[in-house]
Amino acid sequence: MRYLFAACMPFFLVVACSDGGSDDPAQPIGNMAPQAAFTSPTTADERSSFNASAGGSSDPDGMIVSYSWSIVNTDQIDITLQGEDTENLSISVGEIQNSADIQIMLSVTDDLGESASASSVVSINEVDAQLLPPMPNEQDSLATVAGIDTDGDGVRDDVERSILGLYPLNTPRREVLLIGASAIQMQVMAGNDGDQAESDAASERSADFAACALSSGSVETVRQDLAALKLFTLNTDARRQAYLDYEASRAGTIQRAVDPSLVDCTFEF
């Protein structure tokens, strides 16, 4: 459209740029192109929302009558748009596994059908891996029963990393698995320490995990998650023995099934 108007001389505009046969003498003899401009952040994190505003767009001889937003999402990350035909675009970013760029495209059209466009790149940051402690080296990680828990959240650093690898795009599930991982770590330490009170507390934590996990997953997926957690956690002979000692301590006890509505299923990480 910009090309057509640029080609039109004012003199001929009434005829050459008419809308198909009208001979209305009031038809403008010229139209200046609108200007597309928008503001948006240049970076955003996963699981965040931000806006792009086309308020800076203008039309020197008329008005903007329509907006059209789109994105170029080469890496196909989880992006949801709202207001694609309004002045303000809302962009929600879902879970991503790796940082990526998206390109936001805006096209505006004025009251005489002339259009203009603008674009801008936004870098979307993967944040979960950055929030975790670094993966410890294998020798250090396997050296003790307790292992390395740099951030002190009750889950070994290597296990946290493994859980992120298992569910890179599912934070709620990862939180549930972290509860399970903390339960197994408590069990290992209870078995290692031979402490019955620790064993009782670890069993309660295991029940919390069961309640949280079954609130958001089937019994089959929960069993699979549990197996993965044991694979990650019980990865030395000493840890396996400590876990078996914990198991032995549970014989003859009972453990209630808890009300899921009373359990805090979030995990700070």
Binding site: S203, S206, A207, F209, A210, L214
Partner: peptide, 15 residues
């Protein structure tokens, strides 16, 4: 079935 799995099962039965 270990105690963790028993906890899952009893939660499942509760549900």
């Amino acid at each position: 079935t270990d105690s963790d799995e028993a906890n899952v099962t009893v939660q499942y039965l509760r549900g």
